[in-house]
Simulated scan of single mutants.
Amino acid sequence: MVHNLTRRGLLAGACALAWDARAASGTDDGKAIADIPSLGSLAAKRGVLFGAAIDHTTLTDPRLAALYRHQTRIVTTDTALKLGSLRPQRPEVVDYWEADALIDLATRSGLAVRGHTLAWNAWQPDWVERLTRREAAYWLERHIEETVGRYAGRLHSWDVVNEPLWPDDNLPGGLRGGPWYAKLGPDYIRQAFTIAHRADPKVKLVLNEAGSEWKKSFTSGERQQAHLMRLIDDLQHSGIRLDAVGLECHYFPNFEFDPKGFSGLIGSIADRKLDVYLTEIDVNDTEFPADLATRDRLVAEKYAMLLRPALTNPAVKVVQTWELTDGQTWLQEQAKGSRRPRPLPFDADCRPKAAYHAIAAAFGT
């Protein structure tokens, strides 16, 4: 295990000051943030935890940190707990400094934390591809045991398996190809949940999936819904503990939405005594008009479109955006020219946008 104690110590100290200073200060920025009604508080009145993914920028930006503290009640680690972040070069060399800093700060601020993610067939370090079957089984188990065990008793939930489905790969059950599937077959999913449960019997275990919430998506949403329900049934019939299903809800151009189909999907999951988390909501506005007011209005409409049917079902316990402000979004990688994406409820200066008001209205109805 590798730790840069100097970097980690300095960062943790700076982060603690960042998260505490603005909430206690009388600065204009702190006052402005405190004056914005909290989405976390509005959601709580409906029995829902509202939150967002959190990344390293929150560790050093006091205003962003204050916004998270005021607006959210739960946060998900963005990349800090992914295998590629923890063990990028060699499996035996692991560095938890960023994850530790994020979790420490969130915990000190009274925010629940979701760990993301333990087993994923995408965004893996090169060394995973080179493993034999026997080595893959060993490192999947060791990684989950060590990572879940390190934070046992501190996290709200874990995305144990992330995006296991991708029907376009034409594998049995609509499963996604990738290193874990290639080495261990579909049983890697059951193994991951079994190991995570053993490492922390009390943390909530989540199957997190993309595309199933849409009538049309990259993976043909209607087909993926059927695959998702079969996978859930298979896990439950096998005696695997599963507490919730995460529906990511990323919107991309040309996706199609059917409110009745979405409600039906949530209902089917709820019928299996599982909670539903909307885990990664954002709106890709690449194809929307350039005019900011028009674009923001269309983004807000997508949030309202998703949340209206979702919040009618009490099985929906968590609603999260994938980051909180436009300045953090992963969609910046797809930006065209000088046009910056605006997919989230707050702009890059932490100011609420139309999407914020759409979310607030959904929680308030």
Rank of each mutant, 00 (worst) to 15 (best):
A119T: 00
R73D: 15
G327V: 02
E135R: 09
L344W: 11
S41W: 02
Q320N: 06
A99C: 01
P88E: 11
W322Y: 09
I103M: 02
A199Y: 00
I189K: 01
D285C: 02
L11H: 06
L175C: 13
R87D: 12
Y303K: 13
T117M: 00
A44R: 04
P62I: 04
P91Q: 05
D100V: 05
K317I: 11
A106Y: 03
E287A: 14
L39P: 03
A137G: 13
E146H: 07
W97N: 05
V160Q: 09
L67I: 10
F252N: 06
P179Q: 06
Q89E: 10
V319L: 01
M305H: 06
R130G: 04
R340K: 07
Y188K: 03
K183V: 12
T76Y: 12
C15V: 10
V93S: 09
A119P: 05
A43Q: 03
R7I: 13
D187A: 14
Y96D: 11
G261M: 10
W166S: 11
Y251S: 04
L59M: 09
P314Q: 11
T321V: 01
A192C: 09
A65S: 15
T57S: 15
G239P: 10
G26V: 10
L86Y: 03
G47Y: 10
P343E: 10
G185Y: 07
K273D: 15
A34G: 08
H250W: 01
I33H: 10
R114W: 15
D100R: 03
T76I: 10
L344K: 07
A199F: 00
V75Q: 09
Q225G: 02
I33Q: 00
R295F: 06
R230P: 04
S268Y: 00
A18K: 10
D200S: 09
L42C: 05
L171H: 01
W330M: 00
T107E: 12
N4P: 04
V206L: 15
Y303H: 13
K204C: 04
V276Y: 00
A335T: 04
A210I: 03
A196I: 08
D271C: 11
P62Q: 05
A310K: 12
I195P: 01
L111Y: 01
H156G: 09
L118F: 14
M305A: 10
Q224R: 01
W322C: 05
A315K: 02
V113T: 08
I269H: 00
P62E: 08
A182T: 13
T312G: 03
T147Q: 06
H357M: 05
A119H: 03
T107Q: 07
A65D: 05
L292I: 07
A12I: 11
D61F: 01
W19Q: 15
Q332K: 04
T147E: 02
R134N: 15
M1Y: 15
R133A: 12
T321E: 02
Q332V: 08
R297G: 08
V206I: 13
V161R: 06
G149L: 02
D104A: 11
Y277H: 12
K260T: 14
A355D: 00
F252R: 15
Q332T: 14
L83F: 12
A358H: 08
D61K: 06
L64T: 06
I74C: 05
V148W: 03
A66I: 07
R142E: 15
S212G: 08
L344G: 14
L81S: 01
H197M: 13
A335Y: 04
A43R: 07
G327H: 02
D100C: 00
G115W: 02
A21M: 14
